[in-house]
Computed example of a mutant assay.
Amino acid sequence: MLTVRQGKAGKTRRVHLTGSLVRALEPLPRPGPVIGGTQTAARQRLKLIAQKCDTTYRGWHAFRHYAGTRLVRQTVSLEHAARHLGHATLGTTRVYAKWSDQALPTALADW
C-alpha cells in the first residue's frame, strides 16, 4: 500500500500497488515522498521516468487514464477502477476508463 495526497484539497488515501511497482520502489530510501513532495517535484520526477522509459511525458493524468483503462479492461469492473483511482462516482471513472471495442464481444463469447 502507498499513501498518496491528491487533488486540490490534498486529500490523503491509501492505494494498492502492483507487484512490478513494488519491485521498482524497493531501492528507494524510506520514508519520504516517492514521486515528489510538491506538484513541481512530482512533475519533474515523472518527466524523468518517462524519459528513462523512452516515452513522451503527457502529464500525470495520462498515467491515471492509462491505469483506469487498463484496470477496467482487465477486471471489467468500473467499481474496482473507481476505488483504485479514488473516485466518488462511477461517472468520473467512465471518463478515465476508455472501453475497449472488444470488451463486450469477448465477455459474451462463452455464453
Rank of each mutant, 00 (worst) to 15 (best):
R5H: 07
R5N: 07
R5V: 11
Q6I: 12
K8W: 08
A9E: 14
A9G: 04
A9H: 14
T12S: 14
T12G: 01
T12L: 14
R13I: 08
R14C: 11
V15M: 08
L17R: 07
S20V: 09
L21D: 10
V22R: 08
R23L: 10
L25A: 01
E26Y: 03
L28P: 01
P29S: 06
R30N: 02
P31R: 07
G32W: 04
P33Q: 04
P33D: 14
I35L: 13
I35V: 13
I35R: 01
I35H: 03
G36P: 01
G37F: 02
G37V: 04
G37P: 04
G37M: 06
G37L: 05
T38W: 03
T38I: 03
T38D: 10
A41K: 11
R43Y: 10
K47L: 08
I49D: 09
A50Y: 02
A50M: 04
Q51K: 10
Q51N: 08
K52T: 00
C53N: 09
T55Y: 00
T56Q: 11
T56R: 12
G59L: 03
G59F: 05
W60S: 07
H61I: 04
H61P: 00
H61K: 06
A62K: 01
Y66C: 04
Y66R: 12
Y66I: 05
A67N: 06
A67E: 11
G68A: 09
G68D: 05
G68Y: 03
G68I: 02
L71P: 05
L71D: 08
R73G: 14
R73V: 00
T75I: 02
V76M: 06
V76Q: 13
V76R: 08
E79M: 10
H80M: 05
H80R: 12
A81H: 02
A81I: 03
A81Q: 08
A81N: 04
R83S: 12
H84W: 11
H84G: 00
G86F: 01
H87F: 07
A88C: 13
L90Y: 12
L90E: 13
G91T: 15
G91M: 10
T92I: 14
T92K: 09
V95G: 00
Y96E: 05
A97P: 04
S100A: 15
Q102D: 15
A103N: 05
A103M: 14
T106M: 15
T106N: 15
A109F: 07
D110G: 11
